[in-house]
């Protein structure tokens, strides 16, 4: 009897937690199709808010900006990150510990502090707040995740692979290009997807380093929620949710395949 009760309690507990995690998201999704403007009362299925989204020029621009930024920042983060991971893994150099420390700092530093720090940097350099400031910031906060992922993957590879390439006459560049990058393949893709998600979702750092010349989606949503909840936010959240899901599942499948 005791065993059965325990099982029931365990299952109920898990169920409640998943309910807690999913109900709010599902409510947003469901009500993005609700005709009603203000209340939570269901007044019928409608794609009205999606139609409105499509016609909202500002949101479309911000979405395009976010996608572009995400694409460019995660690509450059993966490029830089693979160089950095190889440096940390393979080379002995002055200040290796400091570099390690900086990667670790980037992982643990609160986004808020990083946002402010970059804002101060861009003020002093000076870099005008807009696309470039966002690009630098996003690449930077994606970097540690790329480095950690790739560094771990490099650690799993047989180090004799690198040595034997060198032994056969490969220069460091040939080794990087023909051995390391192909072997990192799936890890490169999953760290790119991770970076892209991080970039698309970021609010806090972007909040400090964005400028009016280059509006991005999360900040647009932030402003919309602040000024009052509109069903349009439900619709756009649903779309983002869908894409996130696609990305997470895709990244998981790629990792599983490896």
């Amino acid at each position: 009897m005791i065993k059965i009760n325990e099982k029931i309690i365990t299952n109920c507990f898990s169920f409640l937690i998943y309910a807690f995690l999913y109900i709010p998201i599902l409510v947003v999704v469901v009500y993005s199709f609700n005709k009603s403007q203000f209340s939570m009362i269901w007044e019928g299925f409608s794609l009205k808010w999606y139609r409105e989204l499509i016609n909202d020029h500002e949101i479309l621009t911000a979405t395009w900006h976010s996608l572009l930024l995400g694409f460019l920042a995660s690509t450059s983060a993966v490029l830089l990150g693979s160089l950095a991971a190889v440096c940390i893994k393979r080379y002995k150099f002055q200040g290796r510990k400091l570099l390690h420390g900086l990667v670790f700092t980037l992982v643990v530093i609160p986004d808020l502090v990083m946002g402010i720090a970059l804002l101060i940097l861009f003020h002093f350099l000076p870099v005008p707040l807009g696309f470039w400031s966002l690009f630098f910031a996003h690449t930077t906060f994606c970097l540690p995740f790329v480095i950690v992922t790739l560094h771990a993957r490099l650690g799993q590879l047989d180090k004799h692979l690198f040595e034997s390439a060198k032994d056969l006459g490969a220069s460091e560049f040939v080794l990087f290009r023909q051995i390391i990058l192909p072997l990192l393949g799936p890890a490169l893709i999953s760290s790119w997807l991770l970076s892209f998600t991080l970039s698309i979702d970021d609010v806090i750092i972007s909040y400090f380093v964005a400028g009016p010349s280059f509006e991005i989606l999360p900040l647009k949503i932030y402003a919309m929620v602040r000024t009052g909840v509109t069903p349009e936010v439900n619709a756009i959240s649903t779309i983002i949710l869908g894409f996130t899901l696609l990305f997470v599942v895709g990244a998981t499948l790629i990792r599983r395949k490896k």
Partner: peptide, 20 residues
Amino acid sequence: LPPEERLVNTVFQSYALFPH
């Protein structure tokens, strides 16, 4: 001299064949 410039080659215990 670095390994790539030496006229010797090594066969590793793990073979270290490039899997790709």
